[in-house]
Simulated scan of single mutants.
Amino acid sequence: MKTRILALFLSLGATSALAFPVTVDNCGTPLTFDSAPTRAVVQDINMSKMAFALGLQPSMVGVTGISGWYKLDDEFKRLQGSIPELAPKYPTMENLLAANPDFFFAGWYYGMKPGGDVTPDTLAPHGIKTLVLTESCVHLDKARPAASMELLFGDIDKLGRIFGREAEAAKLIEGWKAELASIEEKVGKDTGSRVFLFDSGEDKPFTAGKFAIPTAMIAAAGGHNIMADMETSWGTTDWETVATRNPEFLVLLDYQDDTGYLKLLNFLKSHPAMKETDAVKNERFVALRYEELTPGPDNVAAIGKIARALHPEAF
């Protein structure tokens, strides 16, 4: 019996050793890990939730960019536990180096700015490897495919491989795909129902374009993002274009609480062009939080919310 147990132990050890090195695609550049990171820092609420969904808390020494933007619920606080927040918004180099990390998960305009002080290139000399959120790669590489749910699945898979949590990642992805298949069976996919996402902005609306995950989410919920031809991920357009395309349904982004969307809705009701659109006249909308509309574990449940509000007859 002892011989069999020893053989099994050696077999498992060999399997673990063979798992590394791991190389993942990082915005078109290979990123290799000889072992799993042990001192990770994660930016933003959506990426932190990705890490929590994989149970990476024991390997995390900090989060950044959360309390300065969003109101946190009790569940997030529970999952965060004793992991400190190193910076409430964008971290500085000093914030990060003080935690002595070996890994940073962030994105362009999700904690990093091209040419800024904190980038993969500036962190590398300090022994910090940076995984870039795939949705944000378009800011440096315009030759990216349009948004799909692979933006979420791919990043979860990468995190799973990097931290030796492949099985956990695969289980999450399998469950999400099953939920999406169930929704599509009920409502179809991209039925042409005209949807506009309103994030913020009065002079010009800030919204999701071709490369942002809400475009894929809206399609999965049986709608069509009227700004899906906007050649960016997140960006501004003009009210004339939005009103001319006459959205039938709105997705309103709620940053701080469960009533913040009312400011957006009231603004639209007072706007001379938008108040004439079908969506505003009929008050057809769903309010979703930031972490539901940026790549993360909350995406699939949010797709269900959009689908139910857009196609109530199907549920």
Score class of each variant (00 low, 15 high):
254 D>K: 08
245 R>E: 07
229 D>W: 05
234 W>T: 02
224 H>A: 13
243 A>F: 02
255 Y>G: 11
243 A>V: 04
220 A>Q: 10
235 G>D: 03
219 A>C: 09
238 D>N: 15
263 K>A: 14
267 F>Y: 15
222 G>L: 00
228 A>V: 13
221 A>P: 06
259 T>I: 08
223 G>P: 01
255 Y>S: 12
264 L>P: 09
226 I>S: 01
237 T>I: 05
262 L>R: 15
225 N>L: 07
234 W>H: 01
224 H>V: 14
248 E>I: 08
257 D>I: 07
244 T>W: 11
253 L>R: 10
238 D>R: 04
239 W>K: 07
266 N>D: 14
237 T>E: 05
248 E>G: 14
264 L>W: 13
254 D>Q: 13
254 D>V: 08
241 T>C: 06
239 W>Q: 07
232 T>P: 01
215 T>M: 06
256 Q>P: 09
247 P>W: 07
262 L>D: 13
257 D>K: 07
230 M>A: 15
249 F>C: 07
227 M>P: 02
234 W>D: 03
239 W>R: 02
215 T>N: 11
223 G>Q: 02
251 V>N: 00
246 N>K: 13
228 A>D: 15
214 P>V: 00
225 N>E: 08
259 T>L: 02
267 F>P: 10
254 D>N: 12
254 D>H: 09
247 P>M: 09
